[in-house]
Every structure is written in C-alpha cells, then in structure tokens.
Simulated assay, not measured.
Amino acid sequence: MTFEYSLAQLTVLETSPVEIAKIAAECGYDYVSLRQIYMGVKGEKIYDLRKDKKLMQELKGILKNTGLKVLDIELARIFDGVNIKDYEPAMETCRELGGKHILSSIWTDNKDFYTEEFAKLCDLAKSNGLTVDVEYVPIAGVNNLKQTVELLNDVNRDNAGIMLDMHHIHRAGDNTEDIAKIPKEWFHFAHLCDASKEIPKEKEEMIRIMREARDYVGDGGIDIASILNSMPIVPYSIELPNSAYIKEYGLKGHAQNCLDKAKAYCDKFVKGRE
C-alpha cells in the first residue's frame, strides 16, 4: 500500500510558505498544506501570497524543483457575519499553486445560516476547480460526524467533502461504523495525529492539547487504524502541533518525526476501506 503525506501548517505554525515547503521537501513529504486564510491565533504570522509576489515565485520554484505539491489551503470558516467572497483570493492562490482543496469548518450554531453560506462557499470554490472539505471540531458549531453528514446532504454539492481529524473524531465520541457508511467520494484527505485516550473534561485543556500538545501517531491512545480502515485511502495531512517537541527537536526535526512515525504506523496497520 502506498500512502501520501502532507505537512500541515499548524504542525509548524510560525513558518512562512517557503519555509514550510522547504521543510516538507527535505523531510520527504509528498505535499504541503498551507494557511492562507488567517485566524489571528497565537503564533500565527501572515504571509499573503497574493500580495507578496516574490514569496509566491520563490515558493513556486521550490515546488517545481522538488516535486512537492500543495494539497490544500485553510481555513475558510463559516461564522456569524462571514463574507464568503473574502475567501476568493485564497482560492485563486490554491488554484495557481496546483492545490485541489479548501479546508472549512463551521463556527456558528445557526444551521440555516451555515448551510446557506457553506453552499455559497462550495459554489465559489467550484468556479476555481476546488473541493471544499468540512472539518468538524469538538468546540465548534458543527462538532460531530452526524452534523457534518447532515450538512453535506443538505447542500448536495458535488465538490463538497468531509475532512476527518483523528483528534476530533476521538474527542467527539464518533464511531467507525458511521464513518464506514459515508460515501467514498466525500473523502479527499484526512488529518493525522494522536492524543491521550482520556478526553479532558475542561474545555481549556482540550483546546490546549488540540493547539499545542498532540502526540505522534501511535504514541497516544486513539485507535487510528480503525478510523483509517473505515475510510478510503486518501492523502494524510499531518496536523500535529506540539510546542514541547518543537523545543526539543526543532521545526524540521519535529516535522521529520511526524512523518517517520506516521509512515511506520500506517505501513503496519492501515489497509483502508475498499
């Protein structure tokens, strides 16, 4: 079985598009997953490739010379007051770099609103030849598998998909039987990481782990193999922020550990859903 891996921005959050691409290529990743829609979180720096032409050309050079590809661009959030058109420049960047997917998540409880806005997002992405993949997050508006499946059925767009994150599946208490029922065409990529089997009771602790203390694949308590074997084989974007590991190993060392651990685990345990 051949697996493909991407280095996600959150794993090495402070890097520029050029820096993360260099790290990904040197470590042996197949893809890079870039953040071009910024969220204002701690440690996040803004590198707008549509405005910084020099940075864009340098990134294109790295992609061309190394064979590294862009998998997706994040994060097109749906929230109260969102203007979907604001995401068009990032979509144009994704298309220009050869990417295929826009990552999205829902941060409002207003179902009618987020369904309508997500449909608009899908339509805008389709005009750029991109899919839109929903990542449910345990602390967000759409926070479990059931809500996500309902959303995708309601919008009924052929470029809409689901992006499953191992941490979020476990924290939401979802099961592999329900994952196995999801149409295969909804899957385009997934997020790999691990975490403790015990689910924090405090929201603050869950957020801390999610943003800065995830485990290497196979080192935590999540049954990752069962999850991956209930879905088709897709590229795996390693989203594994861990500030302690970065302090110990450096950005490149951490990214390399992420890839090596994931490869060893998937090669041993993952066959995927037929």
Rank of each mutant, 00 (worst) to 15 (best):
T2K: 15
Q9Y: 12
L10D: 06
L10T: 08
L10A: 12
E14M: 13
E14V: 12
S16R: 03
P17Y: 00
K22P: 08
C27V: 15
D30L: 10
Y31L: 04
S33N: 12
L34Y: 00
R35C: 03
I37G: 02
I37V: 11
M39I: 14
G40S: 03
K42Y: 12
G43Q: 03
G43I: 09
E44D: 03
R50A: 12
K51Q: 13
K53G: 09
L55A: 14
M56K: 05
Q57I: 12
L59F: 01
K60C: 10
K64F: 09
N65V: 07
N65M: 11
G67E: 01
K69S: 04
K69Q: 12
D72W: 08
I73Q: 10
E74Q: 02
E74C: 01
F79G: 01
F79H: 12
F79E: 10
F79I: 06
G81W: 10
V82A: 00
N83V: 12
E88L: 09
G99P: 04
K100P: 05
I102V: 08
D109N: 14
D109P: 11
N110W: 05
K111E: 13
K111C: 04
F113R: 13
F113V: 13
E116C: 11
E117V: 11
A119F: 08
L121G: 00
L124S: 02
A125D: 01
K126T: 04
K126N: 03
S127A: 13
G129R: 04
T131G: 01
V134S: 01
V134K: 03
V134N: 05
A140T: 00
G141Q: 05
N143V: 10
N144S: 07
N144R: 14
K146A: 15
Q147W: 01
Q147C: 10
V149Q: 11
N153P: 05
N153Q: 14
N153R: 11
N156G: 01
N159S: 01
A160Y: 03
G161P: 04
G161M: 05
I162Q: 07
H170M: 08
R171N: 06
D174A: 06
N175E: 09
T176K: 03
E177D: 13
D178H: 11
I179D: 00
I182V: 10
P183Q: 02
K184A: 10
F189P: 07
L192G: 07
C193T: 03
A195F: 05
A195D: 10
A195L: 03
S196Q: 14
K197Q: 13
K197P: 07
P200D: 02
E204P: 11
M210W: 14
M210L: 14
M210T: 15
E212G: 15
E212A: 15
A213Q: 11
R214A: 00
D219W: 10
N229T: 00
M231W: 05
I233F: 07
P235V: 02
S237I: 00
L240P: 08
S243Q: 15
Y245L: 15
Y245W: 15
I246Q: 08
I246G: 05
K247H: 06
K247P: 08
E248D: 13
K252I: 14
K252M: 10
A255E: 09
N257V: 07
K261N: 11
Y265S: 05
Y265W: 01
C266L: 15
C266I: 15
D267R: 13
G272C: 04
R273M: 04
R273H: 06
